[in-house]
Amino acid sequence: MNTLRERIHAQQERNAARYSSWLPGWRNRRIRRRAMVAWLVSAVATLVVGLYAGDFRTMTFFVWWGLLMITVVLQMLNKVLTNNIGERTARLLDERELALRGRCGYVGFLVAVWSMVIAAMVLASTPISSTRFGPFVLLISLIALVGNVPSALLAWQLPDDEPDPIAEGEHRG
């Protein structure tokens, strides 16, 4: 009988296999980098608008919400295009991918720490802390920005797959 752990592993493998077949034509450096830049612009815009969102009944809040949704979609696109190497369980990664995950995860960790320091300073020094909703919006915006840093770095770094002449020869032959 399968243990819960084995079933979770099997499900993770199925998910990984499914996601790796999504958007095959987009899995090149040019599109990965464009998706990364689009995510960065959207995430920064979410954060900036979030600073002024204030009350949830205002128009700015709905603009912030829309930007957040766009950021989340672009975040998912980044993860799909990088095979989710930045967040995938170690069991499904080989040694090169583990090294990449370690490098990008470390940068992500540093960005997260410094973002929290800056957020604490913003909350302490602006009227945003006087509203209950302000810190919530700021934190969600920061999570949207910081949570995807490893995948964004991978999207920027990963090279194009070089054609394999042997595989091409097999297809022709």
Binding site: D94, E95, R96, E97, A99, P159, D161, E162, D164, I166, A167, E170
Partner: peptide
């Protein structure tokens, strides 16, 4: 006559890792 994917499967890594080894981007 081994493709990158075949070698990758035999050594249980992703084909991109074989490409990185061949380019010298990764040392095994």
């Amino acid at each position: 006559g081994l493709t990158r994917a075949q070698l990758a499967e035999a050594v249980e890594v992703n084909p991109q890792t074989i490409g990185a080894l061949e380019r010298g981007d990764h040392y095994p």
